[in-house]
Structures are given as structure tokens and as C-alpha cells.
Amino acid sequence: MDTVGPAKADLALTGEGADNTQALTYPRIDCKNVSVYYDDKQAVFDVSLAIHDRAVTALIGPSGCGKSTFLRCLNRMNDTIEGAKVTGDIFMEGENINSPDVDPVLLRSRVGMVFQKPNPFPKSIYDNIAYGPRIHGMVDGRDDLDAVVEKSLRRAGLWDEVKDRLTQPGTSLSGGQQQRLCIARAIAVRPEVILMDEPCSALDPIATARIEELIDELRKRYCIVIVTHSMQQAARVSQRTAFFHLGNLVEMGDTDQIFTNPRVRRTEDYITGRFG
């Protein structure tokens, strides 16, 4: 069901040399038989898939299909939900991150996350970005921190808009700016993977377009997994797409293939709008 490696076009896009190619050859995250239970109710059934580095993987499917729940396995966010249980193996750099030995706190510094609703902390713009580097002890001194903040904001395409008001509260920004602030906050801790849970669902079309451009830009450096309800968005920003239905992974493949030539009937029905 799964094709190995991204589409050829990706190679040209990323173009950062030899070790890049290697990262592309091997999956960044390899999930084997992942199931999730909320108390006795099973929400995700035996999902196995590979997520590639320096590429955007979109998880699509109707509401309640388990795609967000699956996404939250990748940074162990389900640990924070009472009664949630995750089984199966999730290998990241050869390490099973679903093992009880792995400290979720350290894992989450490697796997950043952006949520559906922009959720800046009720702190200044600067402190929002500085939060992660500070708690993880990643910086020495103020200058270093200033540099990290600027770099993160630049990468999130927000620097020019906020550089003169870094001390203002993050909540004073517009919705789209807040979401880019959250992305900047996530990349400030230099993660390897960024998870995005419907990052544009609370934004207007213009703000959405900016976030999508940003995602495309970030793909050159990070492994990105995005959950989206919008099939157009999946088609626009992702290189690989996984279709979930009723807690099962129905089909996964290159985005072009999924959207133009799905192998499973259910995928086709969903993409053409016959259900969902």
C-alpha cells in the first residue's frame, strides 16, 4: 500500500546535498501497529506507516477518523489525556518513542506541535518564543536568546511584522499572526519534526495562504506532519498523504498518486466528496 520514498520532484525542491538525500531515503518516523484506546473505546486500529524527512505528510479523513489522535502519538501528547493508552511501536531515529523508558518531555523538545486554535501563552511575543529555549537550557545569555528569537521569527515569516513590538503580549496579534507565532515558538527549540493539527481551520483564506507558504518553506529543514480537513490544502502543501477512515489507515502514498489515482475505492469516494 505504501510506496517507498517521496516523489522525485521533492529531491529537486529540497536540494541541500548528500545527507539530505540520505534523510529522504530513510523514513524519519516508522510506525508499526499503532493502536490507541480511550478507556475501552479504540480510536486508532493497528496503523503502520512511514513518515519521511524533509517532506510534508498530510493526514486526511472525515471527522472522528483518528487522524488527530494518531498525530498526538508522535509526541506522546496522548499521555496527558486521562484513560488514553497507546500500543505498538513508533521508531524515530531507531528509537522506539512509545516505550515507557522514553521521557516524553525530552521527546517533545524534538517533536514540536502547532494546534488547531492559535494558543500563544499570555506572555510577550519575545517570551513566547524564548519559552522553549529557556526551559530546555538551550541558550547561554541574553544575546544568544535574542538571536534564537529573531531566527525563529524570521523562519516563521513574522519578524518584519513584530520586530518593533516584541514586548507586547502574544495575544495582541491577529489570528494568522498568532498561528505563525506558535510555529515560531515550536521551531525555536530546533525540533526535528513539526506536527500540525489543522493549523488553518481557525484562520481566514489570506492567513491560511501565508501559513501554507510557510509550511512549504519549512519543509526544506523539517519533517512535517499535518492533519487537515481541507483536501485542497493537503493537495497543495503535502508530498505524501495518508487517508484515515474509522480509525484505520486506508491508504497512504505520494500525494499526486492519492489524489489522481487512488488504489482504494473508499479513498476515491472521500476525495471526490461522496462522503465525509
Binding site: 501528547m77 496527558t80 517533545r108 514540536g112 494546534f115 519559552y131 515550536a186
Partner: peptide, 27 residues
């Protein structure tokens, strides 16, 4: 205090006590 703020802090790799001290209590 909205759950989204807790999620945000946890997803940044904050521990429970860091989340409480630095995000929840100030809010």
C-alpha cells in the same frame, strides 16, 4: 485556563510543574 494553553506548554516539552508555574498560575 484553557486546555489549549496546557497543550501548548506540554508540546513545548515543559514538565507538569513548569507548565503550572510558568503558564497556568500566571494566567
Amino acid at each position: 485556563v484553557p486546555q489549549t494553553l496546557r497543550d501548548a506548554a506540554f508540546a513545548m516539552g515543559a514538565t507538569k510543574s513548569e507548565t503550572i508555574k510558568q503558564v497556568i498560575l500566571p494566567a
